[in-house]
């Protein structure tokens, strides 16, 4: 079926666009229902974080004095009052706070993963390609850094420099690249022995060009998969820190901080304070994991 149309187009004059490995992967991904579901979930969460404020009736910091003191009776989710997700313990609009929390959580996840991708890829590919003593030194350094209990360091940083979102980004970035560097190095080692790398070396292509032109493009699949799985890990890390009370500073919040607050007040019967942040948290994680899984299936060369 495909071959006949292909032959027909091939006989036509002029260069025909080739079927790139990326196009193949994209087709497989689009056919994967779970992955597409995950992608739609993610788009929904992203749209919520970016444009959710438009629908909010209150800002995330103003207290609603009407419901204060009677949160259990009046602060529940309702369209009429304008508190779609109810209010938190102080009478602040939970919808606006969830939007804002999702923004922070997504930002931490994406920034952490970006740092991991950029630093980890360059570091790992260099170590793997150069090899020998350089490789040993670079990777032992990673081993040493990994042996340091990062949560302890992160908490120290936050205590020393005060709780700020910049420190949170720095802290998450500091820990996220190491696992990536290891994965990329391992993949580079297996690529390095391939004949097309040897062919480039024999032609005299410079090492940085070989890394950029031959190694990294062949690693992109692994990197893409690992990144989508790394984002939820970063979100979890941030949530854990926020849960400990060391995350972003009030009135800003994050999903982890909201869940922490909700968990604290659940005994009074305000289940929505836990439920809504948790829902978005779980939706985000599910979305990323399904997309990551789908990417891995789509890019796995063994499946071809």
């Amino acid at each position: 079926m495909v071959s006949t149309t292909e032959q027909r187009t091939a006989t036509q004059v002029g260069p025909r666009k080739g079927r790139s490995p990326w196009a193949d992967a994209r087709r497989r991904f689009l056919r994967n229902k779970a992955a597409m579901g995950g992608l739609i979930l993610l788009l929904f969460v992203a749209a919520f974080a970016l444009f959710g404020d438009v629908l909010a009736q209150y800002s995330n910091e103003e207290l609603d004095y009407m419901v204060m003191g009677q949160i259990v009776e009046l602060g529940g989710p309702s369209i009429a009052s304008g508190h779609y997700f109810g209010t938190d313990d102080l009478g602040r609009d939970l919808y606006a706070r969830t939007v804002q929390g999702t923004q922070i959580s997504l930002a931490v996840g994406v920034v952490g993963a970006l740092i991991a991708v950029i630093v980890g890829t360059i570091y790992g590919a260099t170590a793997g390609y150069v090899g020998g003593r350089t490789d040993s030194i670079m990777m032992r350094l990673v081993d040493i850094f990994m042996a340091v209990p990062y949560m302890f360091v992160l908490i120290l940083l936050l205590v020393m420099y005060g709780r700020s979102i910049t420190i949170l980004f720095v802290g998450v970035g500091l820990i996220s690249w190491m696992e990536m560097a290891r994965i990329v190095r391992g993949q580079t080692l297996s690529l390095k022995g391939r004949e097309f790398i040897e062919a480039a070396q024999a032609t005299g292509v410079a090492a940085p060009v070989i890394i950029a032109r031959h190694i990294v493009p062949n690693l992109l699949g692994v990197i893409a998969v690992y990144t989508t799985l790394l984002v939820p890990l970063m979100i979890l890390t941030e949530s854990f820190i926020s849960f400990l009370g060391l995350g972003v500073q009030e009135p800003m919040t994050s999903l982890g901080a909201l869940i922490s607050e909700g968990a604290g007040t659940i005994a009074y019967g305000t289940t929505w304070q836990l439920g809504f942040p948790l829902l978005f948290f779980v939706l985000t994680l599910f979305g990323f994991f399904f997309v990551g899984d789908g990417l891995r299936d789509a890019l796995d060369p063994k499946d071809r």
């Binding site: 080739g18 790139s20 490995p21 990326w22 391939r194 004949e195 097309f196 040897e198 062919a199 480039a200 032109r213 031959h214 493009p217 062949n218």
Partner: peptide, 8 residues
């Protein structure tokens, strides 16, 4: 194997 699979 001597050709980069990601290049035309």
């Amino acid at each position: 194997a001597s050709l980069n699979p990601r290049m035309t």
